[in-house]
Design a protein around this nucleic acid. Structure first.
Lengths: 157, 157
DNA sequence: GCAGTTTGGTTGACATGTCATCAAGCTAGG
DNA sequence: CCTAGCTTGATGACATGTCAACCAAACTGC
Protein backbone atom coordinates (compact mmCIF):
# COMPACT_ATOMS: atom_id res chain seq x y z
CA UNK A 1 0.00 0.00 0.00
CA UNK A 2 1.29 3.41 -0.98
CA UNK A 3 0.23 6.44 0.98
CA UNK A 4 -3.29 7.48 0.06
CA UNK A 5 -3.74 9.53 -3.08
CA UNK A 6 -5.45 12.61 -1.71
CA UNK A 7 -7.63 14.71 -3.97
CA UNK A 8 -5.78 17.37 -5.90
CA UNK A 9 -7.22 20.83 -6.19
CA UNK A 10 -9.43 20.12 -9.18
CA UNK A 11 -10.78 16.92 -7.73
CA UNK A 12 -11.41 18.51 -4.39
CA UNK A 13 -13.26 21.36 -6.01
CA UNK A 14 -15.51 18.94 -7.86
CA UNK A 15 -16.14 16.78 -4.82
CA UNK A 16 -16.88 19.60 -2.41
CA UNK A 17 -18.91 21.41 -5.01
CA UNK A 18 -20.95 18.34 -5.69
CA UNK A 19 -21.76 17.86 -2.05
CA UNK A 20 -22.63 21.46 -1.44
CA UNK A 21 -24.83 21.55 -4.50
CA UNK A 22 -26.51 18.37 -3.41
CA UNK A 23 -27.35 19.77 -0.03
CA UNK A 24 -28.53 23.21 -1.12
CA UNK A 25 -30.54 21.87 -4.02
CA UNK A 26 -32.23 19.40 -1.77
CA UNK A 27 -33.13 21.97 0.83
CA UNK A 28 -34.52 24.39 -1.70
CA UNK A 29 -36.49 21.87 -3.75
CA UNK A 30 -37.92 20.31 -0.61
CA UNK A 31 -38.85 23.69 0.77
CA UNK A 32 -40.67 24.81 -2.35
CA UNK A 33 -42.40 21.49 -2.81
CA UNK A 34 -43.70 21.52 0.72
CA UNK A 35 -44.78 25.12 0.51
CA UNK A 36 -46.49 24.88 -2.87
CA UNK A 37 -47.92 21.40 -2.76
CA UNK A 38 -47.76 20.15 0.81
CA UNK A 39 -45.62 17.21 -0.23
CA UNK A 40 -42.19 16.06 0.93
CA UNK A 41 -39.70 14.91 -1.70
CA UNK A 42 -40.21 11.26 -0.76
CA UNK A 43 -43.97 11.76 -1.08
CA UNK A 44 -43.52 13.28 -4.49
CA UNK A 45 -41.21 10.53 -5.65
CA UNK A 46 -43.65 7.82 -4.64
CA UNK A 47 -46.57 9.55 -6.30
CA UNK A 48 -44.59 10.33 -9.39
CA UNK A 49 -43.33 6.78 -9.84
CA UNK A 50 -46.83 5.43 -9.37
CA UNK A 51 -48.35 7.88 -11.80
CA UNK A 52 -45.86 6.87 -14.51
CA UNK A 53 -47.02 3.30 -14.30
CA UNK A 54 -49.68 2.00 -16.70
CA UNK A 55 -52.21 1.14 -14.06
CA UNK A 56 -51.23 3.64 -11.39
CA UNK A 57 -50.33 0.71 -9.19
CA UNK A 58 -47.25 -1.35 -8.35
CA UNK A 59 -46.16 -4.18 -6.11
CA UNK A 60 -44.50 -2.86 -3.00
CA UNK A 61 -41.22 -4.58 -3.72
CA UNK A 62 -41.22 -3.42 -7.33
CA UNK A 63 -41.69 0.17 -6.25
CA UNK A 64 -39.05 -0.17 -3.55
CA UNK A 65 -36.54 -1.48 -6.10
CA UNK A 66 -37.22 1.33 -8.53
CA UNK A 67 -36.80 3.93 -5.85
CA UNK A 68 -33.77 2.28 -4.27
CA UNK A 69 -35.57 2.22 -0.95
CA UNK A 70 -35.66 -0.56 1.59
CA UNK A 71 -38.94 -2.42 1.77
CA UNK A 72 -39.30 -1.45 5.35
CA UNK A 73 -38.92 2.21 4.58
CA UNK A 74 -41.47 2.03 1.82
CA UNK A 75 -43.90 0.08 3.96
CA UNK A 76 -43.74 2.70 6.70
CA UNK A 77 -44.00 5.53 4.23
CA UNK A 78 -46.94 4.01 2.42
CA UNK A 79 -48.76 3.61 5.71
CA UNK A 80 -48.37 7.31 6.35
CA UNK A 81 -49.45 8.25 2.85
CA UNK A 82 -52.40 5.93 3.19
CA UNK A 83 -53.49 7.79 6.31
CA UNK A 84 -53.52 10.94 4.24
CA UNK A 85 -55.55 9.32 1.50
CA UNK A 86 -52.90 9.60 -1.21
CA UNK A 87 -52.53 5.89 -1.88
CA UNK A 88 -54.24 2.64 -0.96
CA UNK A 89 -53.05 -0.90 -0.40
CA UNK A 90 -54.65 -3.72 -2.35
CA UNK A 91 -54.20 -7.45 -2.14
CA UNK A 92 -52.26 -9.11 -4.90
CA UNK A 93 -54.32 -11.65 -6.84
CA UNK A 94 -51.41 -13.81 -7.93
CA UNK A 95 -49.40 -13.80 -4.71
CA UNK A 96 -51.05 -14.01 -1.33
CA UNK A 97 -48.12 -12.36 0.42
CA UNK A 98 -48.02 -9.47 -1.91
CA UNK A 99 -49.33 -5.99 -1.45
CA UNK A 100 -50.10 -3.53 -4.20
CA UNK A 101 -49.86 0.21 -3.80
CA UNK A 102 -52.30 2.19 -5.87
CA UNK A 103 -52.74 5.88 -6.45
CA UNK A 104 -56.06 7.25 -5.21
CA UNK A 105 -57.83 10.01 -7.13
CA UNK A 106 -56.65 12.42 -4.44
CA UNK A 107 -53.11 11.15 -4.92
CA UNK A 108 -53.32 11.66 -8.65
CA UNK A 109 -54.64 15.18 -8.19
CA UNK A 110 -51.80 15.86 -5.74
CA UNK A 111 -49.02 14.89 -8.18
CA UNK A 112 -50.67 16.56 -11.09
CA UNK A 113 -50.97 19.79 -9.27
CA UNK A 114 -47.47 19.54 -7.80
CA UNK A 115 -45.63 18.51 -10.95
CA UNK A 116 -45.54 21.74 -12.97
CA UNK A 117 -44.19 23.76 -10.08
CA UNK A 118 -41.69 21.12 -9.14
CA UNK A 119 -40.36 20.76 -12.67
CA UNK A 120 -40.12 24.53 -12.89
CA UNK A 121 -38.09 24.58 -9.70
CA UNK A 122 -35.76 21.87 -11.00
CA UNK A 123 -35.24 23.96 -14.11
CA UNK A 124 -34.78 27.20 -12.24
CA UNK A 125 -32.26 25.86 -9.76
CA UNK A 126 -30.42 23.34 -11.88
CA UNK A 127 -31.25 22.47 -15.47
CA UNK A 128 -31.54 25.97 -16.89
CA UNK A 129 -28.26 26.95 -15.23
CA UNK A 130 -26.27 24.41 -17.22
CA UNK A 131 -24.72 24.79 -20.64
CA UNK A 132 -25.66 22.09 -23.16
CA UNK A 133 -22.21 20.60 -22.72
CA UNK A 134 -22.57 20.47 -18.97
CA UNK A 135 -26.00 18.94 -19.23
CA UNK A 136 -24.66 16.23 -21.50
CA UNK A 137 -21.67 15.68 -19.23
CA UNK A 138 -23.91 15.31 -16.19
CA UNK A 139 -26.03 12.78 -18.04
CA UNK A 140 -23.08 10.70 -19.19
CA UNK A 141 -21.11 10.86 -16.00
CA UNK A 142 -23.97 9.99 -13.72
CA UNK A 143 -24.90 7.10 -15.94
CA UNK A 144 -21.35 5.77 -15.73
CA UNK A 145 -21.25 6.10 -11.96
CA UNK A 146 -24.64 4.44 -11.61
CA UNK A 147 -23.60 1.54 -13.81
CA UNK A 148 -20.41 1.11 -11.88
CA UNK A 149 -22.18 1.00 -8.55
CA UNK A 150 -24.98 -1.19 -9.83
CA UNK A 151 -22.75 -3.88 -11.31
CA UNK A 152 -20.77 -3.83 -8.13
CA UNK A 153 -23.71 -4.44 -5.85
CA UNK A 154 -25.13 -7.14 -8.03
CA UNK A 155 -21.79 -8.88 -8.28
CA UNK A 156 -21.23 -8.59 -4.54
CA UNK A 157 -24.76 -9.46 -3.45
CA UNK B 1 -48.68 31.26 -17.74
CA UNK B 2 -47.86 28.86 -20.55
CA UNK B 3 -48.12 25.16 -19.96
CA UNK B 4 -45.15 23.91 -18.00
CA UNK B 5 -41.96 23.24 -19.91
CA UNK B 6 -41.39 19.59 -19.14
CA UNK B 7 -37.91 18.16 -19.31
CA UNK B 8 -36.86 16.95 -22.73
CA UNK B 9 -35.04 13.67 -23.11
CA UNK B 10 -31.57 15.03 -22.47
CA UNK B 11 -32.66 17.01 -19.46
CA UNK B 12 -34.58 14.11 -18.04
CA UNK B 13 -31.61 11.85 -18.48
CA UNK B 14 -29.38 14.26 -16.59
CA UNK B 15 -31.89 14.84 -13.81
CA UNK B 16 -32.74 11.19 -13.23
CA UNK B 17 -29.13 10.19 -13.56
CA UNK B 18 -28.08 12.75 -11.04
CA UNK B 19 -30.61 11.56 -8.51
CA UNK B 20 -29.80 7.93 -8.96
CA UNK B 21 -26.09 8.59 -8.71
CA UNK B 22 -26.68 10.63 -5.61
CA UNK B 23 -28.56 7.86 -3.92
CA UNK B 24 -26.29 4.97 -4.88
CA UNK B 25 -23.12 6.89 -4.11
CA UNK B 26 -24.47 7.84 -0.75
CA UNK B 27 -25.46 4.32 0.16
CA UNK B 28 -22.14 2.86 -0.89
CA UNK B 29 -19.94 5.49 0.72
CA UNK B 30 -21.92 5.33 3.93
CA UNK B 31 -21.75 1.55 3.94
CA UNK B 32 -18.00 1.43 3.48
CA UNK B 33 -17.35 4.19 5.97
CA UNK B 34 -19.40 2.46 8.64
CA UNK B 35 -17.85 -0.90 7.94
CA UNK B 36 -14.25 0.30 7.79
CA UNK B 37 -14.24 3.05 10.37
CA UNK B 38 -17.42 2.77 12.42
CA UNK B 39 -18.45 6.28 11.42
CA UNK B 40 -21.58 7.60 9.72
CA UNK B 41 -21.18 10.20 6.99
CA UNK B 42 -22.41 12.97 9.30
CA UNK B 43 -19.89 11.84 11.91
CA UNK B 44 -17.13 11.93 9.33
CA UNK B 45 -18.12 15.36 8.07
CA UNK B 46 -18.09 16.84 11.55
CA UNK B 47 -14.73 15.32 12.39
CA UNK B 48 -13.27 16.25 9.06
CA UNK B 49 -14.37 19.89 9.26
CA UNK B 50 -13.01 20.14 12.77
CA UNK B 51 -9.70 18.59 11.84
CA UNK B 52 -9.20 21.08 9.02
CA UNK B 53 -9.43 23.93 11.44
CA UNK B 54 -6.26 25.45 12.94
CA UNK B 55 -7.08 24.63 16.51
CA UNK B 56 -9.25 21.57 15.99
CA UNK B 57 -12.12 23.52 17.47
CA UNK B 58 -14.97 25.71 16.25
CA UNK B 59 -17.95 27.61 17.52
CA UNK B 60 -21.11 25.59 17.19
CA UNK B 61 -22.79 28.10 14.94
CA UNK B 62 -19.70 28.48 12.79
CA UNK B 63 -19.54 24.74 12.25
CA UNK B 64 -23.27 24.57 11.59
CA UNK B 65 -22.97 27.26 8.93
CA UNK B 66 -20.07 25.55 7.21
CA UNK B 67 -21.90 22.26 7.11
CA UNK B 68 -25.25 23.76 6.13
CA UNK B 69 -26.83 22.15 9.16
CA UNK B 70 -29.37 23.63 11.54
CA UNK B 71 -28.02 24.50 14.96
CA UNK B 72 -30.44 22.13 16.52
CA UNK B 73 -29.28 19.24 14.40
CA UNK B 74 -25.66 19.95 15.16
CA UNK B 75 -26.36 20.32 18.86
CA UNK B 76 -28.08 16.92 18.97
CA UNK B 77 -25.38 15.31 16.90
CA UNK B 78 -22.55 16.77 18.96
CA UNK B 79 -24.20 15.43 22.11
CA UNK B 80 -24.15 11.95 20.64
CA UNK B 81 -20.56 12.25 19.46
CA UNK B 82 -19.61 13.57 22.87
CA UNK B 83 -21.07 10.44 24.45
CA UNK B 84 -18.76 8.42 22.25
CA UNK B 85 -15.75 10.51 23.21
CA UNK B 86 -15.08 11.90 19.73
CA UNK B 87 -15.54 15.57 20.60
CA UNK B 88 -15.97 17.76 23.68
CA UNK B 89 -17.81 20.96 24.39
CA UNK B 90 -15.93 23.92 25.83
CA UNK B 91 -17.09 27.30 27.02
CA UNK B 92 -16.36 30.26 24.84
CA UNK B 93 -14.10 32.81 26.53
CA UNK B 94 -15.30 35.79 24.52
CA UNK B 95 -19.03 35.06 24.46
CA UNK B 96 -20.76 33.65 27.47
CA UNK B 97 -23.59 32.16 25.40
CA UNK B 98 -21.25 30.38 23.06
CA UNK B 99 -20.19 26.78 22.97
CA UNK B 100 -17.09 25.46 21.30
CA UNK B 101 -16.76 22.00 19.84
CA UNK B 102 -13.29 20.50 20.00
CA UNK B 103 -11.82 17.32 18.63
CA UNK B 104 -10.59 14.89 21.28
CA UNK B 105 -7.48 12.80 20.68
CA UNK B 106 -9.78 9.85 20.04
CA UNK B 107 -11.71 11.93 17.55
CA UNK B 108 -8.53 12.91 15.78
CA UNK B 109 -7.41 9.28 15.62
CA UNK B 110 -10.82 8.34 14.25
CA UNK B 111 -10.71 10.76 11.30
CA UNK B 112 -7.10 10.07 10.58
CA UNK B 113 -7.68 6.40 10.38
CA UNK B 114 -10.90 6.79 8.40
CA UNK B 115 -9.71 9.37 5.89
CA UNK B 116 -7.46 7.33 3.59
CA UNK B 117 -10.10 4.65 3.06
CA UNK B 118 -12.85 7.18 2.58
CA UNK B 119 -10.90 9.19 0.03
CA UNK B 120 -10.05 5.99 -1.77
CA UNK B 121 -13.74 5.11 -1.90
CA UNK B 122 -14.62 8.54 -3.26
CA UNK B 123 -12.03 8.02 -5.95
CA UNK B 124 -13.09 4.49 -6.75
CA UNK B 125 -16.77 5.25 -7.04
CA UNK B 126 -16.69 8.75 -8.47
CA UNK B 127 -13.57 10.77 -9.14
CA UNK B 128 -11.54 8.15 -10.97
CA UNK B 129 -14.52 7.32 -13.18
CA UNK B 130 -14.62 10.81 -14.66
CA UNK B 131 -12.72 12.18 -17.63
CA UNK B 132 -10.77 15.38 -16.97
CA UNK B 133 -13.43 17.27 -18.90
CA UNK B 134 -16.22 15.82 -16.82
CA UNK B 135 -14.36 16.54 -13.63
CA UNK B 136 -13.93 20.16 -14.65
CA UNK B 137 -17.56 20.39 -15.74
CA UNK B 138 -18.74 19.02 -12.41
CA UNK B 139 -16.61 21.56 -10.60
CA UNK B 140 -17.85 24.50 -12.62
CA UNK B 141 -21.47 23.52 -12.77
CA UNK B 142 -21.80 22.76 -9.09
CA UNK B 143 -20.15 26.03 -8.23
CA UNK B 144 -22.65 27.89 -10.41
CA UNK B 145 -25.61 26.11 -8.86
CA UNK B 146 -24.29 26.72 -5.36
CA UNK B 147 -23.77 30.41 -6.06
CA UNK B 148 -27.22 30.71 -7.53
CA UNK B 149 -28.86 29.10 -4.51
CA UNK B 150 -26.71 30.97 -2.03
CA UNK B 151 -27.41 34.44 -3.42
CA UNK B 152 -31.04 33.55 -3.55
CA UNK B 153 -31.30 32.55 0.08
CA UNK B 154 -29.35 35.54 1.27
CA UNK B 155 -31.45 37.90 -0.81
CA UNK B 156 -34.66 36.26 0.39
CA UNK B 157 -33.64 35.92 4.05
C1' DG C 1 -27.71 51.28 33.64
C1' DC C 2 -31.62 49.06 32.24
C1' DA C 3 -36.14 47.57 29.49
C1' DG C 4 -36.58 45.42 25.01
C1' DT C 5 -34.72 42.90 21.41
C1' DT C 6 -31.51 39.84 19.18
C1' DT C 7 -28.45 35.93 19.15
C1' DG C 8 -26.48 31.29 20.48
C1' DG C 9 -27.50 27.20 21.98
C1' DT C 10 -30.39 23.51 24.24
C1' DT C 11 -34.37 20.83 24.71
C1' DG C 12 -38.62 17.96 23.96
C1' DA C 13 -42.09 16.40 20.93
C1' DC C 14 -42.61 14.57 16.82
C1' DA C 15 -41.53 12.83 11.84
C1' DT C 16 -38.74 9.92 9.37
C1' DG C 17 -35.37 6.06 8.36
C1' DT C 18 -32.91 1.69 9.75
C1' DC C 19 -32.40 -2.74 11.53
C1' DA C 20 -33.82 -7.13 13.32
C1' DT C 21 -37.54 -10.03 13.64
C1' DC C 22 -41.82 -12.24 12.43
C1' DA C 23 -45.74 -14.40 9.99
C1' DA C 24 -47.56 -15.92 5.91
C1' DG C 25 -47.09 -17.73 1.44
C1' DC C 26 -44.55 -19.42 -2.23
C1' DT C 27 -41.31 -23.12 -4.38
C1' DA C 28 -38.40 -27.10 -4.95
C1' DG C 29 -36.56 -31.59 -3.65
C1' DG C 30 -37.69 -35.80 -1.99
C1' DC D 1 -48.06 -34.45 -0.97
C1' DC D 2 -45.13 -32.16 2.49
C1' DT D 3 -41.64 -30.01 4.36
C1' DA D 4 -37.25 -26.89 4.36
C1' DG D 5 -35.98 -22.74 2.90
C1' DC D 6 -36.64 -18.46 0.55
C1' DT D 7 -39.46 -14.22 -0.37
C1' DT D 8 -42.77 -10.62 0.78
C1' DG D 9 -44.36 -7.37 3.61
C1' DA D 10 -45.43 -5.65 8.42
C1' DT D 11 -43.94 -4.31 12.83
C1' DG D 12 -41.43 -2.51 17.03
C1' DA D 13 -37.38 -0.69 18.94
C1' DC D 14 -34.24 2.45 18.14
C1' DA D 15 -31.23 6.25 15.67
C1' DT D 16 -31.49 10.41 13.44
C1' DG D 17 -33.45 14.95 11.78
C1' DT D 18 -36.91 18.85 12.17
C1' DC D 19 -39.58 22.23 14.32
C1' DA D 20 -40.94 25.23 17.81
C1' DA D 21 -40.44 26.68 22.48
C1' DC D 22 -37.33 28.09 25.66
C1' DC D 23 -33.34 30.14 28.43
C1' DA D 24 -29.55 32.94 29.13
C1' DA D 25 -26.16 36.04 27.62
C1' DA D 26 -25.26 40.11 25.02
C1' DC D 27 -26.32 44.09 22.30
C1' DT D 28 -29.39 48.65 21.62
C1' DG D 29 -31.13 52.95 22.56
C1' DC D 30 -32.73 55.85 25.80
Amino acid sequence: MDGPRWLDEREDRAWRGYRRMRRLLDLELARELMQDAGLSEPDYDVLSDLSETPDQRLRLSELADRMLWSRSRLSHHISRMQQRGLVTREECATDGRGSIVALTPAGRRAVESAAPGHVAAVRRHLIDLLTPTELAALGTLSRRVVDHLTDRTEAAG
